[in-house]
């Protein structure tokens, strides 16, 4: 049975998307990503170090673009203009690659998204031919507007970026999922495996995380845990959970045949 994640016309076996930041070194980055089973990996676009020695290793040497789907992000951008500019550079850098992660931040302390600037950037990028996966607040109205603009996936936060606080408003996520015709992925805030499983049980199409793996005591082991959690949560969602009941008058063992 194939249960594929479909984004912008492409299918992926893994519903776990991972970031590539905050690891000890490139070897650990690669080992963790292999353990996670992720096919889509986010990267940031930054000024190249001028004056480096020729042949210095780069992230791309460890994660060859022909083996992974790159998702360039706009992390660190605080205006629509900067985000659009960054992703146009990313498209040039990655030979015309269209799938991108848009995020426009509003505050350096919380990294909470600025949705007014995000919407402005999304409009420009969609018109410019990008497939835009968009990091957003968990506001159902905003999420719907981003879909109407033409984004290919909405990615509401579970809690603040890098906080590991888990899913703070499952009710809003459920409203967003119920109203969306495009994939909804939780991006940001996942702290441990159960958080990822809960996101998937709510009906998310996928989960994107970085710090929960990179900042774990053993990142490679946590990456494997996240893979299982996302798969388990997805299976549980598809299976359909039993209803919650305060009391159950339905014991699991037969009532008949008890010894007297």
């Amino acid at each position: 049975m194939s249960d594929l994640l479909k984004i912008a016309g492409h299918s992926y076996r893994s519903r776990l998307l991972v970031g590539t930041g905050k690891y000890q070194d490139f070897a650990q980055t690669r080992a963790a990503i292999d353990a996670s089973g992720a096919e889509i990996v986010t990267v940031a676009i930054r000024r190249t170090n001028i004056g480096q020695t020729a042949g210095e290793p780069s992230l791309l040497d460890f994660l060859p673009p022909d083996q992974f789907t790159y998702l360039p992000n706009t992390a660190g951008c605080y205006s629509a203009d900067d985000a659009v500019r960054t992703l146009r550079l990313a498209r040039e850098l990655l030979d015309g690659h269209k799938l991108v992660k848009l995020e426009v931040l509003g505050d350096p302390n919380t990294l909470y998204p600025n949705m007014i600037e995000t919407i402005a950037a999304a409009k420009v990028l969609v018109k410019d031919g990008f497939d835009v996966m968009v990091y957003c607040s968990d506001d159902p109205i905003i999420a719907k507007q981003l879909e109407e603009i033409g984004c290919c996936a909405v990615m509401p936060l579970a809690s603040l970026i890098g906080s590991g606080m888990g899913i703070l408003n499952p009710w809003n996520l459920q409203i967003i999922i119920a109203n969306a015709q495009i994939p909804v992925l939780v991006d940001a805030g996942v702290g441990t495996a159960s958080d990822a499983a809960i996101a998937m049980e709510l009906g998310c199409q996928g989960v994107l995380m970085n710090t929960a793996i990179a900042a774990a005591g053993d990142p490679v082991r946590m990456a494997g845990a996240m893979k299982k959690a996302v798969e388990a949560g997805r299976e549980a969602f598809l299976a359909g959970r039993m209803p919650k009941k305060l009391y159950s008058a339905s014991p699991s063992s037969p009532s008949a045949g008890l010894i007297a």
Binding site: G19, T20, G21, K22, Y23, T29, T42, V43, A44, I45, R46, R47, T48, I50, S58, L59, L60, Y70, P72, N73, A75, L89, A90, L93, L94, I161, G162, L208, M209, N210, T211
Partner: peptide, 10 residues
């Protein structure tokens, strides 16, 4: 000039 590359990020 701005010269950029891909680096690790989330």
């Amino acid at each position: 000039l701005e010269i950029v590359g891909a680096v690790g990020g989330g």
